[in-house]
Computed example of a mutant assay.
Amino acid sequence: MNKILSSIKKPNLSFWQIFNMNVGFLGIQFSFGLQQTAINPIFLYLGAAEDLLPILNIAGPITGLIVQPIIGAISDKTWSPKFGRRKPFFLIGALLGSLCLFAFPFSPALWVAVSLLWILDIGNNMAMEPYRALVGDKLPKTQLSLGYQMQSLFVGAGTVIAMISIIYFQDILGLAEEVAGS
């Protein structure tokens, strides 16, 4: 299957088509950025001891090591006539990640937040690995560098927006006054 796909002549895409193809990285990195910014304050709020934070955050490295290679290999060999090669993984990963991000601030106990972190990280990694391969799938060699530069742009932008937006989410959820009052 890979040999067949790599031998097909890929059309040149316009700048805006490449831009559009990579916008999903903004969402994936936004999710990773929110996770990195907000998870420890949520853990502390739920009663975690500071010396346990590193072990509670182990989900990221472990799921990255396990999930990305597995999903990458599966998505390389998967083909759906309706959705193509990578889109089912984007969809499932995005749904898992979104649901976890919405549930995090309302975690009633530490074990719920830790479980949500693991599921969030699985969803993020499930969407991330096939998304990286999309540029190689869709672009001819002459446009690969532009495609990967566009990915990098959205990776950085998603992380920065997540870091900044955490302040606004605290205000929206009314957590800023609660944290200031304690």
Rank of each mutant, 00 (worst) to 15 (best):
L53G: 09
P88Y: 06
M163D: 08
I119W: 15
A73Q: 12
L153K: 13
Y131C: 07
K82M: 12
T63K: 11
P108F: 02
K87A: 10
S75A: 05
P140A: 04
S80D: 12
I62R: 11
G27W: 10
S115I: 00
M150G: 12
M1Q: 13
G93W: 11
Q151H: 13
G136C: 05
L146C: 09
L101Y: 05
S14M: 10
M21R: 03
P81Q: 14
A113C: 09
A127Q: 01
L117W: 12
L139E: 06
F25P: 00
I122K: 08
S182R: 06
P130H: 05
P108N: 03
P88I: 01
I66C: 14
S75N: 04
L13S: 07
I71C: 11
P130N: 05
N40L: 09
L139T: 01
Q149A: 15
A176C: 04
L120Y: 11
L120W: 12
F169W: 01
F102K: 02
F83R: 10
F104P: 01
E177K: 09
L95P: 06
G24H: 01
G97T: 06
I122R: 09
N20D: 10
G156W: 09
Q149N: 15
F106G: 04
V179N: 07
E50I: 01
I92K: 14
L44T: 13
E178P: 03
N57L: 15
G72N: 00
F169G: 00
P88C: 04
L96D: 09
W118R: 10
V23S: 08
L65G: 14
E177Y: 05
S31A: 15
I42E: 14
L44V: 13
G97V: 04
T78P: 13
M21V: 00
V112C: 06
Q149G: 15
V114W: 07
D121W: 08
S98F: 14
L34M: 11
L117I: 10
L46M: 03
A113L: 09
S145N: 12
L44S: 14
G174P: 03
A94Q: 11
A94F: 14
G174D: 07
L34A: 07
L5E: 13
I55S: 11
S14H: 09
I172F: 05
D76M: 06
G93N: 10
A176L: 07
Q149K: 15
G24E: 03
M126N: 06
E178V: 10
S14C: 09
L99G: 15
M21H: 04
N12H: 14
G136W: 04
P105F: 01
G24K: 01
I92F: 15
K3I: 02
L13P: 05
S152A: 14
Q35D: 14
L53R: 08
I166P: 00
G33V: 03
P130R: 05
E177S: 07
L175Q: 08
P88K: 05
F25E: 01
S75I: 00
T37Y: 07
F106W: 08
I4Q: 10
F104M: 09
L173Q: 02
F32T: 05
